[in-house]
Amino acid sequence: MFKFKTPSNKTRKIMSEVALGSDIDYEKSAIDKIKDLTHHEEVKITSSGNNSIFIALSAIEGDIIVPDQGGWHGFKQIAKFLNKNIITLKTDFGLINPKEMDNLEINDNSALIFTSFAGYAAEQDTKSISKYCKNNGITTIEDASAGIGDSKNLLGNGNYSDIILASTGSPKMINVGSGGFISADDDEIFKKSALPQKLSKASQITCSGIDCEIDNVKENLEATINATEYLKKHLTNSLHPDKRGVNVIIPHEDAKDISWNLKQNLTTDKSGFITTCPNYNRVKSKAIAIEVKNLDYGCLKKENLDRIIEELKINNLQ
């Protein structure tokens, strides 16, 4: 049985101690660490990733551009709630080609919101996205829930993305079980969204968890990317095989039945790590996703990965 990812023992211990009473300002400490990761001057810790999205989108006056797949359904739901005009950007199974925006009618003061990894399977080219958007007056909003702590400093980097936000719920890279954050250099973003910030303030318990979990985020992300790369190397038909990612997506016409078979043999102690597409958050075509990001880091050993590969072979997915 595989183990589903949970906060570390150290994180749980600290959060328990804070719940019993503590004078330590974990919020300030966590904010300082997030600034080091994102290279942004301003950081707010929030009660959830969706609240971070709400804060970011409420500060945008123009259109909200979203990828046609491989994003997060909350992008569209929150933009719709805020009465924003939503523009859908055509992608390559979630991967953004900024030049596709040449074909769109985009108003001034608009923003593109996207995830670090398209469908969790392939890293976005943040450099080219940033260059295009800066040249065209488009604000970039990166949901770095899965990309924060990138050792290559390409994802979750404020030198490329104007706004960076993340969920720190389960099973994200900063895995606390609740909370989130938003960062930017432009303090006008926070001035325009003062009310939603007040409504989404995180507790010291959540802040203490973020402060602790963030210490290992670089190492944990690297382990997840390496495990995903290992699986991709043993497959011939995964999407975006040459891109870094934190899951593996395998197109198949019988995705529903095969996913059911895999779930019977690749079990976890809690939630599973096999998902089925079509799914906007992954790809909008029939496929199976192996959610490596959901697994405890102790499970990312060669023998466990080989077991996943063997099950994929049995189901003719290799």
Rank of each mutant, 00 (worst) to 15 (best):
G49L: 10
G49R: 08
N50D: 15
N51D: 15
S52I: 01
I53N: 01
F54V: 00
I55S: 05
I55E: 13
A56P: 05
L57M: 15
S58C: 04
S58Y: 04
S58G: 11
S58V: 04
S58A: 13
S58H: 11
I60T: 09
E61D: 15
E61C: 14
E61A: 15
G62M: 12
D63K: 11
D63S: 12
D63M: 08
I64V: 15
I64C: 13
I65W: 07
V66C: 12
V66H: 10
P67R: 13
P67G: 15
P67A: 14
D68W: 04
D68G: 09
G70D: 14
G70F: 09
G70V: 01
G71H: 08
W72H: 13
W72S: 14
W72R: 08
G74D: 15
G74S: 15
G74F: 14
F75L: 02
F75N: 08
F75G: 02
K76Y: 08
Q77H: 04
I78K: 04
A79P: 01
A79Q: 03
A79W: 02
F81N: 08
L82Y: 04
N83Y: 09
N83H: 13
N83S: 10
N83T: 01
N83Q: 14
N83R: 05
K84E: 09
K84F: 06
N85K: 08
N85H: 06
N85R: 00
I86N: 07
I87V: 15
T88L: 03
T88I: 14
L89I: 01
L89Y: 03
L89W: 00
K90C: 02
K90S: 10
K90L: 12
T91K: 08
T91Q: 05
D92I: 13
F93P: 00
F93T: 04
L95R: 09
L95S: 01
I96Q: 06
I96Y: 10
I96G: 06
I96M: 06
N97D: 12
N97E: 09
N97G: 00
N97P: 00
N97S: 07
K99I: 00
K99E: 07
K99A: 00
K99C: 00
K99Y: 00
E100F: 10
M101K: 02
M101I: 03
D102Y: 03
D102C: 05
N103C: 05
E105D: 11
I106R: 02
D108L: 14
D108T: 11
D108S: 12
N109D: 14
N109Q: 10
S110N: 05
L112M: 10
L112H: 03
I113C: 08
I113D: 13
I113K: 01
I113H: 06
T115F: 02
T115D: 03
S116G: 07
S116A: 08
F117C: 11
F117S: 07
F117Q: 11
F117R: 04
F117A: 05
A118T: 02
A118M: 06
A118F: 11
A118V: 07
